[in-house]
Design a protein around this nucleic acid. Structure first.
Lengths: 336, 336
DNA sequence: AGAGTTGTCCAAAACGTTTTGGAAGTCAAC
DNA sequence: GTTGACTTCCAAAACGTTTTGGACAACTCT
């Protein structure tokens, strides 16, 4: 209700003094400051956000883009992550706005709207591509952003990512140690960085073991995509005895296909992301997940630091992948 | 990059004319309008959001509160709902900010911050209580808001809710028709409206059927709560043969308890919310869900209309509940 | 020719804050 | 009693937009 002018008038002080008293400047006497504080509390005064934003040339807002394409929106519990991120940003006076891509607009257009309209101070990008036009645009504008997932951009930028290469390398090696020799990979679209790097991890392991890398099928990173990929791999002359899947969603589709074919009794499966649902599939889905504590807080911290101007090189987090040991990877390496 | 003043200067026009040209006012000639449009497009001009917000006295923002307490955050796919809501709000120039409750602050404090600081034009409240202090506060301020879930407020307010009473009444009747006579209810905290009204639906049905309503246990609306509730009900002399659970999360906890006791072969269960995970439990969880199409769009529409000043009575949606027929409700009405 | 109407344009105010660049007063030191 | 330092306060500018209330010229009617 109240604004600074009314508050100042009621106190017989200038707007300046009231403003500076509330901001804790040292050039207002302790007595005055206290008087102002109390009056402000009594009136329930809060500075008008739009006015402060205009004056300070900061939107006090961060946008996170929500891709509308199906599948693999990002880390484990996306909403939890956003919630944690928003909470920590709020500690610094920033709010988090969620920005799904409107119908008939590209993600790039949306970035443009937010950046050129000074609607936000930074952006959080998920589902990065190897060559990501949003990243290129933001870099060309010198606009602060953090990505969830790396890119192949020549210029460094802040990111948080899991080490998909070593995760999938290790998972493949685990199958090899268990005696598997025909280890397939159900991959996602290779223009996504995460999909590409996960495939590379599988390929490297296979090559190291002297195995062929032809048991590979690429589909959309969805349950349906995994289902199709599994059917395709099962149709090959030399079926795989194990499958490493780019995402849990794909792995769940694979499990469904395997159940239909032989009751799911012959082929081992491992996914990635540790979706909650994985604990409830049958067999329970063995998977991997990124280590590192509160992801939301990490994103918030990186966002604040990149807004503050810290160099990108100092704002890159590559987390190890840990194996989630359930049942679906335990079948013997003999095809049915 | 550009602002109105620079744009006007480069065109040899006044700020007023450029502004009005871009806003499509009729008092600028077609020729000038076109010239301005083109220059603006070329420069990639977008009005500074903070400036417009200050001048128009609208924040162009809507906040949705995310409760930090565990369990039952709301409708089926909460993030999908938010995404849909945000997309439709964006069509009207509003952005959606997510507002988790910061550590050490109450939801009420948060509302105060947003309202008194003019940070948003409206709020979306989830997980309403029967007597909800946030609702009372917003009503006392005359501030626009929509709730997900009704309240017992004396003053009307906009909401979207499922008809929990008839949903739980029908589910109980369904069990009764199947021959069940000892039908228990696993309820949530009764200060939440949804929990209260669901219990009332169960109670009404039991009373109509001439059955006692003592097979009732109340716990937190979480898996753990459901687990505890089931153990408690199983400990009673006359075990229920069926349980109606306030939420799917509780129902999943109940299934776990039943599995531990006798392999889950004796007692029927039904939940509410249609969580995706319910299709993967064993047995697959029979449940209920709210009907009605795109929930996010509905919330967005209600928010816009309440901002526009439409009366609350015209902005209340009570949706029917439909049964989701899976396996967990099919056991015969004989206790093991 | 004068009065009214219409079509274009613009100067200035307003939104509420933060910040700049002093002003006025007090006190101590010289 | 002048100087400088320090404390406390404030007027005014600035942020970039939208909107108000005309100004001016070019028509159209009498």
């Amino acid at each position: 209700m109240a604004n600074l002018k009314q508050l100042a008038q009621s106190l017989g002080l200038s707007i300046t003094t009231v403003s500076r008293a509330l901001d804790g400047y040292s050039d207002v006497s302790a007595a005055t400051r206290k008087r102002v504080q109390e009056a402000a509390d009594r009136a329930g005064y809060r500075p008008n956000a739009s006015a402060r934003r205009l004056r300070k040339q900061r939107a006090e807002l961060v946008a996170v883009t929500l891709p509308s394409e199906p599948g693999h929106i990002g880390p484990l519990h996306f909403l939890d992550m956003l919630s944690g991120c928003a909470e920590h940003l709020a500690g610094a006076g920033l709010n988090l706005v969620i920005a799904p891509v409107p119908h008939g607009e590209s993600e790039l257009d949306m970035c443009r709207r937010f950046v050129d309209g000074h609607r936000v101070d930074a952006m959080l990008l998920v589902r990065t591509k190897r060559h990501d036009e949003r990243v290129e645009f933001l870099q060309s504008r010198g606009f602060p952003f953090v990505t969830n997932g790396r890119t192949e951009s020549a210029i460094q930028h802040p990111y948080i990512d899991g080490n998909g290469f070593s995760g999938f390398h290790a998972a493949t090696m685990r199958f090899h140690r268990a005696g598997h020799r025909r280890i397939g990979h159900v991959g996602g679209p290779q223009d996504y960085f995460f999909a590409h790097v996960r495939r590379q991890g599988w390929e490297a392991a296979m090559t190291e073991c002297g195995l062929a890398t032809d048991l590979y099928v690429e589909r959309m990173p969805t349950e349906q995509g995994g289902y199709e990929a599994a059917l395709s791999l099962l149709g090959q002359p030399d079926r795989p005895t194990a499958m490493v899947c780019a995402t849990d969603e794909m792995a769940i589709g694979v499990l469904r296909a395997l159940r239909e074919v032989d009751g799911g009794q012959s082929i081992s499966v491992v996914g990635h992301d540790d979706l909650p649902i994985g604990a409830f599939t049958s067999p329970a889905l063995s998977t991997m997940r990124m280590t590192g504590g509160n992801l939301g807080r990490s994103f918030a911290s990186l966002l604040l630091r990149t807004i503050a101007g810290e160099p990108a090189e100092a704002l890159q987090e590559l987390h190890a992948i840990e194996f989630v040991d359930r049942d679906s990877h335990r079948l013997p390496p003999i095809a049915a």
